[in-house]
Computed example of a mutant assay.
Amino acid sequence: MKKVPWINIGKKCKILGKKAKNLGCDVCTPISYENGNSDKFPDVKVSVEGREICLHTWELVEDSLKSFHSCVEICPGVKFFEWRGYENDSNTILFEKGDTRILVDSGHFHLLGSLLKSLDDEGILLDSIKAGLYTHCHPDHFDSADFLQQAGVKIGLSKKEEDYLRGEGGLLFRFFGADVPEVKNEIPLEKGKLKLGKIELSIFSTPGHSPGSVCIYWDEKKVLCAGDVVFPDGAFGRCDFPGGSYQILLDSFEIFDDLEIDYLLSGHGYAIIGKENVVKSIKESRNNLRAVIFSPW
């Protein structure tokens, strides 16, 4: 099991402060300092909602409480957690309607504390999330998926991306010194409609940045989670990773022609709001992508 220094499964853990004699909450076994002058907790396990969670040093606990995600409510039912840290990580999107909550792209595992803190600030607990869906399996989007699954969140990605993860896609994790997440694909994301609780989504196959990449569209809200297909400011997903193709990515841009998008939420960068702004931004990115493909240099 992956280890995290802080987590809010079921109930909010109350961090009592660095000078406190213990770290505890009403669901955690209190942990005492080894001695009064120590800044570290012993490496022990505690039970949180019936699951064993390992707690490391106090410094890690303290770091995990710092949030580099800026949460904006894009429209009712859609929260956009924009990553603003100095390391590379993906944005995260939360869809909610009634008691149904769906998370899209949870990012790097070692930066998960930041996302959990931001969710907690919004009053959102991990065990209230029905599903974690992933646009693709690159580490900056998918690295924390196995931990979410251990916490009870159902995980979904496309079957083609799952196969890619088991093959050459896993090379990216090893390149960055990370383990390939061991995840059961409980919600295969295939082209067409997907109903989860009270939310109905449309899934579009958009390979190019990765072979099994998808875009996730909430028809009711006209919100598109574009992953790393397209970015603001005329940018687009890089295709020099294993399994990437600029020509295939350009072909994937065709899905945008038939969609009415009021909110474009990419895997990196800011949210693009307003249909005219979305159309303009996608057009600029497509033109720049064509220039790369057909450049004589």
Results as ranks from 00 to 15, higher is better:
K2A: 13
K3T: 13
P5S: 15
W6G: 03
N8S: 02
N8H: 14
K14H: 13
K21Y: 14
L23E: 05
V27L: 12
I31K: 03
S32A: 11
S32K: 13
G36W: 12
N37Q: 11
N37T: 14
S38C: 07
K40G: 01
K40S: 10
V44H: 09
V44D: 08
V44F: 11
E52F: 09
H56W: 04
S64Y: 14
S67F: 04
F68D: 14
F68K: 14
C71W: 01
I74R: 02
V78K: 08
V78P: 01
F80K: 02
E87M: 09
L94I: 08
F95I: 07
E96V: 00
K97F: 02
K97C: 04
G98W: 09
R101T: 01
I102Y: 06
D105W: 02
S106G: 07
G107N: 03
F109Q: 05
L112T: 01
L115F: 12
L116C: 07
L116Y: 00
L119T: 10
G123N: 09
I124F: 05
L126N: 08
L126H: 03
D127L: 10
S128K: 15
S128R: 14
K130C: 12
Y134L: 11
T135R: 05
P139Y: 03
P139G: 09
D140F: 09
D140I: 05
F147E: 04
I155A: 03
G156N: 10
E161Q: 13
E162P: 00
L165Y: 01
R166Y: 10
G167P: 01
L171M: 12
F176V: 08
E182C: 03
N185Y: 05
L189M: 04
E190R: 11
G192T: 08
G192Q: 04
L194V: 07
K195F: 00
I199Q: 12
E200M: 06
E200G: 04
S202W: 15
F204E: 06
T206A: 13
T206V: 15
P207D: 08
P207S: 02
G208V: 02
S210N: 06
P211M: 04
S213F: 00
I216M: 06
Y217A: 01
E220D: 15
K221N: 06
K222H: 14
C225Y: 14
A235Q: 13
R238P: 00
C239P: 06
P242R: 00
Y246R: 14
L249M: 03
E254A: 14
E254C: 11
D257H: 11
L259I: 09
E260F: 07
G267T: 06
H268I: 04
G274W: 08
K275P: 00
K275G: 03
V279P: 00
S281T: 15
S281Q: 12
K283C: 07
V292S: 10
